[in-house]
Simulated scan of single mutants.
Amino acid sequence: MLAVNPTAAFGRHALAGDEAARCLREAGLDVVVLRRDSMDALREAVDEALRTGAEALVVVGGDGMVHLGVNSLSGTGLPLGIVPVGTGNDVARMLGLPLQDVEGSCARVISALADGGRVLDAGRITTGGRTVWFAGAVSAGFDAAVNERANSWRWPRGTLRYTLAMLRELGSFRAINYTVTADGAETKEGAMLISVANAPSIGGGMRIVPDAAPDDGLLDLFIVKPLSRLALLAVFPRVFSGRHTSHPAVEIRRVRSVRLAAENVVAYADGERIGHLPLDIDVVPGALRVLA
Score class of each variant (00 low, 15 high):
174 R>W: 11
174 R>C: 11
174 R>I: 10
174 R>L: 12
175 A>N: 12
175 A>L: 11
175 A>K: 13
175 A>D: 14
176 I>V: 15
176 I>G: 06
177 N>K: 15
177 N>E: 15
178 Y>K: 09
178 Y>Q: 08
179 T>E: 15
179 T>G: 12
179 T>S: 15
180 V>S: 04
181 T>Y: 09
181 T>D: 14
181 T>L: 11
181 T>S: 14
182 A>Y: 01
182 A>K: 02
183 D>N: 12
183 D>Y: 08
183 D>E: 07
183 D>Q: 06
184 G>K: 10
184 G>D: 09
184 G>C: 08
185 A>Y: 08
185 A>S: 11
185 A>N: 10
185 A>R: 14
187 T>I: 13
187 T>Q: 13
187 T>G: 04
187 T>M: 11
189 E>P: 06
190 G>H: 11
190 G>I: 03
190 G>K: 14
190 G>W: 11
191 A>I: 06
191 A>L: 06
191 A>T: 01
193 L>K: 04
193 L>F: 13
193 L>S: 04
193 L>E: 03
194 I>F: 01
194 I>R: 04
194 I>W: 01
194 I>L: 06
195 S>F: 02
195 S>Q: 05
195 S>H: 03
196 V>F: 01
197 A>I: 03
198 N>C: 04
198 N>V: 04
198 N>Y: 04
199 A>V: 02
199 A>C: 10
200 P>Y: 05
200 P>S: 08
200 P>A: 09
200 P>I: 05
200 P>T: 07
201 S>A: 14
202 I>Y: 02
202 I>A: 01
202 I>R: 00
202 I>K: 00
203 G>N: 08
203 G>A: 12
203 G>L: 06
203 G>V: 01
203 G>H: 01
205 G>E: 08
205 G>F: 09
205 G>L: 10
206 M>C: 03
206 M>D: 00
206 M>Y: 01
206 M>S: 07
207 R>Y: 10
207 R>D: 07
208 I>E: 01
208 I>K: 01
208 I>S: 05
209 V>A: 15
209 V>K: 05
209 V>G: 01
209 V>M: 05
210 P>T: 12
210 P>I: 12
210 P>G: 12
